[in-house]
Design a protein around this nucleic acid. Structure first.
Lengths: 352, 352
DNA sequence: CTGGGGGTTGTAATCGGTTACAATCCTCAC
DNA sequence: GTGAGGATTGTAACCGATTACAACCCCCAG
């Protein structure tokens, strides 16, 4: 079952069938109708591989992310896939697993499949790999992880605004002793978040106490461990801001383990707003980073550069996160100031 | 940059280059070496579309799932992708979103891309869609959602064993008043889980009290709502088994909302063991369903039928879930029996 | 009546591989 | 020395589309 069979049945050439399928306007309505009926009758559908070979367009977009099991990504993947499929495109998702070697394999996969564009949301995309995409003439767009000055399309996140919102929320509740659990320094986004937070605190006139800054790994266990270290401090923070929701969830776990309540004893703020955060107990106050918005802009950036209009300059979008206030934050109370853990006396909190 | 360029440089024909690349043993070592050097020198890599067209094998596997944002799936996707890539295959993931229309689109995508096989883990794959795969000569394997008698390869889950373990665990802790929050009846896997539970309880001599069976939606909110309904009962269950972890998480949320403690007041068991379950507070006792194992068997099933050995009969694997005991279950206590909620008196639990 | 020109359609080259088959080269036994 | 036969390599058809270009049809102005 190929295009020739359709052509025969409709008594036209394969060229006309092809033109009909691809919506070229050079087909007489009556002919097109006859072709469509033949297609219908035979149950024909085109062979995408042949199409790709003939036209030089694979109608596939690549999406390179660090790790699909990180709950941030599935929603991004889904939104991106939706858009792609609706526009007749396929999506190939590749996980770098935070490893440069695997990232190289991901790039190779994209090149071999001749994708029509690639969206990159991982920190492992070194410049020699970017070059390979350039050599393959493959449009790129960086999501969050790009350098605004690299001449490539970028979807940027307005971390300053998002973090400011969180800090404003926390300080307006009266908190002044605020801890921060950062993500791993290897991650571009984690570095940016940290930087945004530090300057935001500074703008609020809150000296950033080095001992109140811990480093996690953007996963639950790292958040838990970091919070444990904060709990060993002489004087506990009354609020904790985490670099992402998983970290916040880990931190809350650690607090619970020590019989501290959230938000009564310690307020916690996350970042990302992964789906589960709304359903935790307490529901997490967090800064939502819309995956749908990111996917949408990323798709636009690639799709417009696909249509070789005006040689497609790099574009830049900026996405503004949004503070979602739930139940893990509360006004600071008098009892709360000065809470600490009684050394050597187990896990019960002590009010000085 | 194509195979001809390589052939020219190595002073051989394109056929020899092709044979070298594909590991055919019909190439003299010296020649192969020369070809490899040419490939290296030119930075050549094959065009997969042309390869697919020429050979009739796309080296793509399809993976059709219901919804990537359901935390059960990402790990499956990742494991499957790992295996595929390691074997030189690409993966196309498609979400049905539980909708028959979207499922039809997913199938069409797979057909057009000429995938070499498709793994299906969704309940929406009607028989007319299965037929289309048959007509397209595309090997299939059903994961969990297949009918063992359909003549197609199936990866089955030994729900009887898994559920028995959970019931044994709960009853050995002394629980007899056991509630069950089922998944939606449209889901094949939810129906099977429910059936396995009912017969397991029966085997234990525990009459299945209809009022102790609620229906959720395999998501957090459904689990929460179902638990709320159970909390309205005259006499509360001392243990709740949920059809999946998200449901269990929702149930725990509802219990917390009513100031009931887990596991002291009510024990909760989940199913799946999604990653977050280990980090909840309390950490969830659950029946682990290994996504890696499922992905592995699924890949084997497809990959062996790819090599047209012996016309590849349908295979069947059975995967045994594994009980993971954590902190959401505890022995029943005397105080606990007969806990109920005082009607109209707010959320405080009352001990009769 | 004729020729220009827009609209429609067909011809055939092309994309970049794979692979059946033919051709050639060696090696070695006789 | 020679022929069989296995190993290696080349030739060229083919996969199924797209698309540049040519050809044709038809209508209408001059």
């Amino acid at each position: 079952m190929n295009i020739q069979a359709v052509a025969d049945r409709a008594r036209v050439s394969t060229a006309t069938v092809s033109r009909t399928i691809n919506g070229s306007n050079k087909v007489a309505p009556k002919t097109a109708e006859r072709v469509r009926r033949a297609i219908e009758a035979l149950g024909y559908y085109p062979n995408t591989n042949a199409r790709a070979l003939g036209s030089g367009r694979s109608r596939i977009y690549g999406l390179i992310i660090s790790d699909i099991t990180n709950p941030f990504f599935p929603e991004l993947v889904k939104s991106f896939e939706d858009l792609a499929v609706r526009n007749g495109y396929e999506v190939i998702v590749a996980n770098t697993g935070y490893s440069p070697e695997r990232t190289e394999i991901c790039v190779q996969r994209m090149l071999e499949r001749k994708v029509d564009g690639v969206a990159v949301m991982t920190s492992e995309m070194g410049s020699h790999l970017i070059d390979r995409f350039h050599r393959g003439q493959i449009p790129m767009v960086f999501l969050d992880t790009g350098d605004p000055s690299n001449g490539i399309s970028n979807i940027l996140i307005d971390y300053t605004a998002g973090v400011d919102d969180a800090v404003e929320h926390i300080t307006s509740l009266g908190h002044t002793r605020i801890a921060f659990i950062s993500g791993p320094m290897e991650l571009a986004s984690a570095r940016t978040r940290r930087q945004a937070l530090l300057s935001s605190l500074k703008r609020k006139g809150l000296a950033s106490d080095k001992s109140l800054i811990e480093i996690g790994n953007h996963r639950i266990d790292g958040g838990r461990a970091a919070m444990e270290r904060l709990l060993a401090l002489e004087e506990l923070p009354t609020a904790v801001i985490a670099s992402n929701d998983l970290t916040a969830i880990g931190a809350i776990g650690a607090l619970h383990r020590h019989n501290l309540r959230v938000p009564e004893d310690v307020s916690v703020v996350g970042f990302d707003d992964i789906e589960i955060s709304a359903f935790l107990h307490p529901a997490l106050t967090t800064v939502r980073l819309s995956r749908a918005a990111i996917a949408d802009r990323a798709f636009q950036a690639l799709h417009r550069s696909g249509k070789r209009e005006a040689n497609t300059p790099a574009v830049e979008y900026k996405i503004r996160p949004e503070l979602i206030v739930r139940n893990s934050t509360a006004p600071v109370s008098s009892k709360q100031t000065g809470i600490t853990l009684l050394k050597g006396a187990g896990d019960r909190p002590l009010h000085k």
